[in-house]
Amino acid sequence: MRAYYFDNEPTDQRLPHDYDPSRPVDVETLGKIGVLYWKVPVEGYLPEIDAIAAKRNYKNRDTINVTKEGLGDQYEAKIKSFFEEHMHEDEEIRYILSGSGYFDVREHPKDQWVRIAVAPGDLLVLPAGIYHRFTLDTENKIQALRLFKDEPKWTPLNRSSETDGNTHRIDYRGYHI
């Protein structure tokens, strides 16, 4: 995992979008905005993932393949929807099994994008209420284990004045100021 401030240049979203020189963001700063991170080697990962899941009450899981082959006719629409700025009313938990991509999160209260480059072995937890988005990198493929506290669901709430008033967003802002 490597995190840094996103340069906001209007080019391909799959490019690194890093400043030159880079403006890195450390794990401690991510923690202040509620983003949690673990490095869990993919080989033999199951016992450690199971332990983290038990400790954090993640009861369900599934695997997603974000590739043209894995998503078929839905590929373009899914890639577009993943990159729309949104929040969830639940944590978003992803453990990267193969491939790579980027999670962009809004640093609160500055509202700047922080880009988090993820690769195999990275476990990322985004808190409920944080504005974020996801994109593949130029390799165009990622396989991730998704963990859930309850039944698997992925309901994005795109950023708007309505989501700004969502109780999960308000709770997030109140906690991460």
Results as ranks from 00 to 15, higher is better:
residue 123 L to C: 07
residue 107 E to C: 00
residue 120 P to T: 00
residue 123 L to T: 09
residue 10 P to M: 13
residue 112 Q to C: 01
residue 162 E to Q: 07
residue 58 Y to L: 10
residue 107 E to D: 14
residue 41 P to A: 08
residue 34 G to K: 06
residue 153 K to C: 09
residue 54 A to V: 12
residue 8 N to W: 00
residue 134 F to T: 11
residue 28 E to K: 14
residue 127 P to F: 07
residue 59 K to Y: 02
residue 43 E to C: 04
residue 38 W to N: 08
residue 117 A to G: 02
residue 70 G to R: 12
residue 77 A to T: 15
residue 135 T to M: 04
residue 68 K to Q: 15
residue 165 G to Y: 02
residue 170 I to K: 15
residue 154 W to M: 13
residue 55 K to I: 02
residue 146 R to T: 04
residue 95 Y to A: 13
residue 121 G to T: 07
residue 76 E to S: 11
residue 41 P to E: 08
residue 131 Y to I: 09
residue 117 A to T: 01
residue 153 K to H: 09
residue 9 E to A: 14
residue 55 K to P: 01
residue 97 L to D: 14
residue 34 G to I: 09
residue 63 T to P: 02
residue 84 E to F: 02
residue 98 S to L: 00
residue 41 P to Y: 07
residue 10 P to R: 09
residue 134 F to N: 06
residue 20 D to V: 13
residue 47 P to L: 06
residue 116 I to P: 00
residue 177 I to E: 15
residue 47 P to S: 07
residue 20 D to P: 02
residue 40 V to S: 09
residue 84 E to P: 03
residue 164 D to A: 10
residue 153 K to N: 15
residue 99 G to D: 07
residue 113 W to N: 13
residue 120 P to E: 04
residue 33 I to K: 09
residue 109 P to G: 02
residue 91 E to L: 12
residue 125 V to T: 11
residue 76 E to L: 13
residue 119 A to S: 13
residue 88 H to T: 12
residue 93 I to V: 15
residue 86 H to K: 00
residue 51 A to V: 04
residue 47 P to Y: 11
residue 131 Y to K: 07
residue 40 V to N: 05
residue 28 E to H: 11
residue 130 I to F: 05
residue 58 Y to H: 06
residue 8 N to L: 10
residue 158 N to R: 11
residue 82 F to C: 12
residue 38 W to D: 15
residue 83 F to K: 06
residue 131 Y to W: 05
residue 15 L to Q: 15
residue 36 L to V: 05
residue 176 H to T: 09
residue 100 S to F: 00
residue 48 E to V: 12
residue 21 P to A: 11
residue 2 R to C: 01
residue 101 G to V: 02
residue 62 D to G: 04
residue 135 T to F: 06
residue 93 I to W: 06
residue 31 G to C: 03
residue 131 Y to A: 03
residue 45 Y to M: 13
residue 152 P to T: 12
residue 88 H to I: 03
residue 146 R to L: 07
residue 43 E to F: 07
residue 95 Y to S: 11
residue 132 H to I: 11
residue 58 Y to P: 01
residue 114 V to E: 03
residue 161 S to I: 08
residue 68 K to M: 15
residue 94 R to E: 08
residue 171 D to F: 03
residue 73 D to I: 06
residue 62 D to C: 10
residue 49 I to C: 01
residue 105 V to D: 10
residue 51 A to N: 12
residue 111 D to L: 00
residue 14 R to D: 08
residue 141 K to V: 01
residue 167 T to C: 14
residue 82 F to W: 08
residue 56 R to A: 12
residue 129 G to F: 04
residue 79 I to N: 11
residue 148 F to L: 10
residue 39 K to Y: 12
residue 86 H to Y: 02
residue 92 E to W: 04
residue 64 I to C: 03
residue 12 D to H: 11
residue 103 F to S: 02
residue 17 H to Q: 06
residue 137 D to H: 04
residue 127 P to A: 10
residue 105 V to F: 00
residue 79 I to F: 07
residue 84 E to S: 15
residue 159 R to M: 06
residue 90 D to F: 01
residue 94 R to Y: 11
residue 134 F to S: 03
residue 118 V to G: 00
residue 141 K to D: 06
residue 39 K to S: 14
residue 132 H to C: 05
residue 87 M to P: 14
residue 114 V to Q: 04
residue 13 Q to N: 14
residue 137 D to K: 09
residue 177 I to F: 10
residue 120 P to A: 04
residue 94 R to I: 04
residue 74 Q to E: 15
residue 80 K to R: 13
residue 141 K to L: 10
residue 162 E to T: 15
residue 105 V to M: 03
